[in-house]
Each structure stands twice: as C-alpha cells, then as structure tokens.
Design a protein around this nucleic acid. Sequence first.
DNA 1: CTAACTGCAAAAGCTTTGCTTTTCA
DNA 2: TGAAAAGCAAAGCTTTTGCAGTTAG
Lengths: 136, 136
Amino acid sequence: MENVKHQRMTRQRRIVLEEVRRLDNHPTADEVYRAVRAHLPKISLGTVYRNLDVLSESGAIGKVETLGSQYRFDGNTEDHFHVRCVECGRIDDLEAVDVRVPEALVEEVSEYQFVGYRLEFVGVCPACRERRPQHE
Amino acid sequence: MENVKHQRMTRQRRIVLEEVRRLDNHPTADEVYRAVRAHLPKISLGTVYRNLDVLSESGAIGKVETLGSQYRFDGNTEDHFHVRCVECGRIDDLEAVDVRVPEALVEEVSEYQFVGYRLEFVGVCPACRERRPQHE
DNA sequence: CTAACTGCAAAAGCTTTGCTTTTCA
DNA sequence: TGAAAAGCAAAGCTTTTGCAGTTAG
C-alpha cells in the first residue's frame, strides 16, 4: 500500500532539527522556537510544533516524556536514560548506565502484555547543589 | 516556627478522598469530579483540583505523574509500580514487583546527587488485547 | 504542477487563580 | 469569629488545528 506521505526538507524543518541537535539541554518546544527564531525570525510556533512532531515521529529526534507539563526534545537518538533535577527541571543524559528491568515480571503479576518500561532518574544537578549546599 | 496551615475536613474534601480511594482505576481530576458530583452535585471543578492538591500534598492520596497530558490520582499510598496500557491509557498497580535500580550508578556517571527514580511499565491491558487479538 | 508545508490566529484541553461568600472548628 | 475552603468564572499555559497562501521536488 502506497499511502506513505512524502516529506520535504524545508528550511524550517532543517533548522529545527539543527537546533534540537545543537541544544544539549533537552529543550522544550518553546526553547526550540526561540533558538530557531535566531535564524528564521518569521517562523511560527505552530510550524515548530509540527516539525518537532514530524521529526520525532520519524526518529530523527527524541521526544522525552517526563514529569511536568511540557514535552522536551532530544537530539541524541541513541538509547539512554535521563536524570532530571528536582530543583530546576534540567534534564541530562546518563550514557553509561546499564539497568536491566525484569520484563517477565509484569506478565507474571498482571494481565498485561509487556511492551516496555520508562525509567527516569531524579537528582540534584551541580548548579542547584551549589545553590543549596547541604540540600536540606 | 508556627507557620503551618491548619486544614479542615470539609464535606467536599472528605468525599473527594473517598472517591479517589473507591475508584480503583487511577482517575483523572475530571473523573474524580464526575464521581464526586454524584454525591455533591454543586461542587466545582476548581474545588476538586484544590482538594486533590491538598490531599496529595499531605500524602493522603498519590499523584501519578505519567505519560500524557493529565494527572492521575491514586488511593493506594503504598509504594508500588504502575503499568500503563499503550492503547487506552489505563493504569493499574503492580503490587508484587520488586525491582532494584542501582542508585549508586547515577552518582558514578554524572554530577547529580541521587534522589530517586521513576519507573513505569508499559503494556497492553486485557481489554485492549482482546480488542486486537494479535496486537500487531 | 501539486502535495506538502508555512504563517497566522483562533481554539482546545487541562489546570490554576482571583474574588466574594460560606463554613468549619 | 476568623482562618480556611467553596463556588464561579476568568485567565494561563502548552499544544493543536483550520485556512489561505507559499514552496520544494
């Protein structure tokens, strides 16, 4: 069935992609928007959303579903975990972490068919630790 | 310092609490609202939100931060994991699962001070499996 | 050429908030 | 009786969508 939609590499899409890849801080849609406007001052927020959608759908970028009310995007498409700072919401990659969650468990203790799991670490980032030395 | 705020057990708050405990499906704020209105037809959505906030802040109920755009609430305040259905968004408890994520790892591979982690399982619930037998 | 995409603005979905009145303790 | 909470409605914030005009291929 040839119902695949052709996609074009427009200037807008290319720059959205470039900026998500360049920004290393897992930007929100709005942060991408602001970064892209430095190159394309007339781009609209709707276009940024649509492109973030297309790009993450196609796997060119990652869509990080984390706590909070906003999506975040990720230029690093390799499989990896994230740490989120409880204080400021910053998100960083955890490259070397190798966690193995027992998949069989889910089907043993529930009626669900296992599909996957989402694991996110929570911590205090260096900047926030400095701000509150003992982190009481 | 005596800046602790007194809290009152109003009729509204009590019924919100009762309904969250009674509903076993991790209801959204709106689902709680609809359930509570069966007892208090005049309650406002804002009051439900404020009470869900107070109750989860105090630990009387759980606030499930999951994928998607809505918060969900949980009458079960014991430590446990959740499975979320990819198809319909339903959330269930996984009582017996015992997963141990290596906490030290985070501080070894990053500058973050470890605080915790969030783990959520993803699967296909019985109802949705039936709807799509092979789940292709 | 034309399907895909953009810009703009309006709408949608969920949650929060301001204000006045009511109520719990 | 006074601080806390309710009710109502408006505002807020992020994301989505409709539509007319533009553009990549």
